[in-house]
């Protein structure tokens, strides 16, 4: 991790105002913001570690636990909601044995809900690693997750 972090930090000057872009790049590289990385960033940017934590927790985009290899985002927009998103979410939670916001212990899947993917015509839909899966039913979900699991 240290080397990957150093590579990111080397492109910054170590100023307080760089904090958010640094954290974004760290998360892009590592998938989440590990404690050690935030401590390192604090030292580099010359800000207290409590401030780094304050900034990182303020923005929904930052995560503090590792993300699964399959990042499942369930749309809860209006269209998806009326067409059964709650049941889709329930099924995914059952299949993966995790709740929304969690990651499976083997780090294969993370599950999140989002407000709207912007594909209302395809509702109910989910996204797995940036790929939209359209017009789902609980049955399709089971197949999809098994298939997604096989990709590993």
């Amino acid at each position: 991790m240290e080397r990957r972090l150093d590579a990111i930090l080397s492109s910054f000057a170590g100023q307080e105002h760089e904090l958010i872009p640094i954290l974004q790049q760290v998360q892009r590289e590592l998938g989440y913001l590990p404690r050690e990385a935030m401590l390192e960033v604090a030292q580099f940017a010359g800000v207290p570690e409590s401030r780094v934590y304050a900034v990182a927790t303020f923005y929904a985009q930052f995560r503090f636990t590792p993300i699964g290899r399959k990042h499942v985002m369930v749309c809860r927009g209006t269209s998806c909601h009326v067409r059964g998103a709650p049941r889709i979410l329930e099924e995914i939670e059952r299949q993966l044995s995790i709740k929304e916001g969690e990651t499976t212990p083997d780090l294969s899947h993370s599950l999140e809900t989002v407000a709207c993917i912007g594909a209302c015509g395809l509702s109910p839909c989910i996204m797995i690693n940036n790929k939209v899966e359209a017009k789902l039913t609980p049955k399709k979900v089971a197949v999809l997750l098994r298939k997604a699991g096989d990709d590993d």
Partner: peptide, 18 residues
């Protein structure tokens, strides 16, 4: 500098790092 505001909105609280 042990303390700062963490999280946001209704969840905002004074917290230490982590």
């Amino acid at each position: 500098n042990a303390l700062d505001f963490a999280f946001r909105g209704f969840d905002t609280m004074v917290a230490t790092f982590g």
